[in-house]
């Protein structure tokens, strides 16, 4: 029973990571851009949701606001800064988006103050439900799994079935060609970047409501999201989904199992500390192992 619950936890943690990684990998796939400030857009989503929810009393309006605010911030940043970085190498992109993190973090603190914000789940999503087999499980975590699956499906439909998707795929394959075909590349890129930002904002609002809405909340998430997309293959949505689930399962089950394993051959309190230390390194070990076998990630096209 505990194991079943932990597997479910691994699944929902993976979906949570997928929500964060989807926008990142989309932007990389289309524009070849590393965006370290993705975590900041996640933070903006959470802050927008918390603020609007506090004003209006409605979580749903807050959720809409988080999408709008993150997409707007994304579009703005794309037009002001990111646009100039496409022809540059990854190094300049890393530095510029690192600088954006500083600006966003301190800017947010300047506007919203020093203290974490309050953001609560709406009553419709809170509480626990009883699953078949008698397992009590928080409704919200099931919602995250559903939203993650919906986003994955939505992105797949978008890319394979819509006009925008055709252009995105064409842009991935050959930039000059779609320009020659009369597609406004600049606008396409702004739209894709805003879409990626909106996904980050959505993740921020959803995850923020069961975590802490505070400055710097995006940074640990950012690193994890990078691990996810590197494992999955940068630019691949399918890779991000598989990578996220792998990381989620590895991390959750590692934390649940490893300290117990260590306790078999060392003293209990030592086993707890060193077991958790190893568990916290596990996803990075997983990443190194995947890259040893497949340097371009599981579903990566370009190395």
């Amino acid at each position: 029973m505990l194991l079943a619950e932990q597997v479910l936890n691994g699944l929902q943690y993976g979906m949570m990571l997928f929500l964060m990684a989807a926008g990142l990998t989309l932007v990389f796939g289309v524009m070849g851009l590393i965006n370290l400030a993705h975590g900041s857009l996640y933070m903006i989503g959470a802050f927008a949701c918390a603020t609007v929810a506090a004003w209006t009393g409605s979580f749903w309006l807050g959720l809409a606001a988080s999408l709008a605010a993150a997409a707007a911030a994304g579009a703005l940043v794309e037009m002001a800064v990111i646009r100039r970085l496409y022809p540059r190498d990854h190094l300049d992109q890393v530095l510029a988006t690192f600088a954006l993190i500083l600006v966003f973090s301190e800017g947010t603190r300047w506007i919203f103050g020093d203290f974490p914000l309050y953001l609560k789940l709406p009553p419709a999503l809170s509480g626990a439900v009883t699953l078949p087999g008698g397992l009590q499980y928080p409704l919200f975590r099931l919602v995250i799994i559903a939203v993650g699956a919906a986003v994955a499906l939505g992105l797949w439909l978008l890319i394979t079935r819509t006009r925008l998707g055709i252009r995105i795929r064409a842009g991935e394959a050959d930039r000059e060609m779609i320009g020659a075909l009369g597609v406004d590349i600049a606008r396409l890129y702004t739209i894709v970047f805003a879409l990626g930002a909106a996904l980050a904002g959505l993740a921020g609002a959803l995850v923020g409501s069961i975590q802490s809405v505070q400055v710097g909340m995006g940074e640990p998430v950012l690193i994890l999201a990078f691990v996810v997309i590197v494992i999955g293959g940068i630019g691949s949505i399918k890779g991000a989904l598989v990578g996220a689930l792998l990381v989620g399962m590895t991390d959750t089950l590692g934390k649940a199992v490893i300290p117990g394993l260590f306790a078999r051959f060392m003293e209990a309190s030592d086993a707890n500390t060193s077991g958790s230390a190893v568990a916290s390194m596990l996803i990075y070990i997983l990443m190194a192992a995947v890259l040893l076998v497949r340097p371009q990630g599981l579903f990566g096209a370009r190395a």
Binding site: F226, V230, M287, Q296
Partner: peptide, 23 residues
């Protein structure tokens, strides 16, 4: 690896050591 993967793999190794040092 090379390119972005190299950037991220070196980052991951440093993070591994960081978490080890903390705990």
């Amino acid at each position: 690896t090379s390119g972005v993967y190299f950037i991220m793999v070196t980052l991951a190794f440093a993070q591994m050591i960081y978490y080890f040092a903390i705990s």
